[in-house]
Design a protein around this nucleic acid. Structure first.
Lengths: 116, 116
DNA sequence: GATGCCAGTTACCTAAAGGATACCAACATG
DNA sequence: CATGTTGGTATCCTTTAGGTAACTGGCATC
């Protein structure tokens, strides 16, 4: 089956859908931290520089609602709570990798611009 | 030379840098429209559904300042103004392509979620 | 029994993003 | 000579994102 070619309007719509889910300063960094093995609230907070508890709490709820993270309560004593990424969240990896690459090149570009 | 492995902190920083440049509802859609050949103000406005002149104007200035677009004035009669993408802007393509792909799959995921 | 860690919540505030609407001069088109 | 197009500005307004700071209850540790 031939790969369908999307119209520019469709492409824009899909990009806006994606932006809607990931945009903001914190969602991707949080998912990256959790994916990296930082699964507990304070761990995540330490892994994501400068995020406040209030914002982290709100973002975690948001990500859970959007099925990107799962919150699990273990009834150990004291109770332990972990956040883990879903497979759906992992599907963002190729995009995130491109964002990392671009961010890296962007730093270099900024340096160049300052020296112009 | 071996490909360097970035730490999670570095990766987060680069992603945040990228987010800083592209986030918001309109920047990527505008660049996509311009790249698609919609180079004049009203063309871009028509190509990007629901954007207002005020916002488009502001975003174009922003993108120009960030060296992602170039504004050219032709002194024809009447004067014609075009916006074109820079090579730097084109370097976003792999990332944008991933965002399109993800947005497409996301729609399907949402449908699935509603039927659960 | 004071202090500290965990997982948050609450109230308050500011800045930025974005939308609605009206308007403009210069030209072109019927 | 009325109407439309082009490339925007100017005002005003609402919503959202995000930051600051204080606080809580349960448990553990010194």
């Amino acid at each position: 089956m031939a790969k369908k070619e999307l119209s520019i309007e469709q492409k824009i719509k899909y990009v806006q859908d994606t932006l809607f889910v990931i945009s903001g300063k914190w969602k991707l960094p949080i998912m990256m931290a959790v994916n990296n093995g930082n699964q507990r609230f304070r761990d995540i907070q330490r892994a994501v520089p400068n995020i406040t508890t209030r914002v982290l709490s709100k973002e975690l709820k948001d990500l859970e609602e959007n099925r990107l993270l799962v919150r699990t309560v273990y009834d150990s004593l004291p109770v332990t709570i972990t956040y883990t990424v879903t497979p759906y969240c992992k599907s963002l990896k190729p995009m995130v990798d491109e964002m990392i690459k671009w961010g890296e090149r962007h730093r270099a570009e900024l340096k160049k611009a300052r020296n112009d």
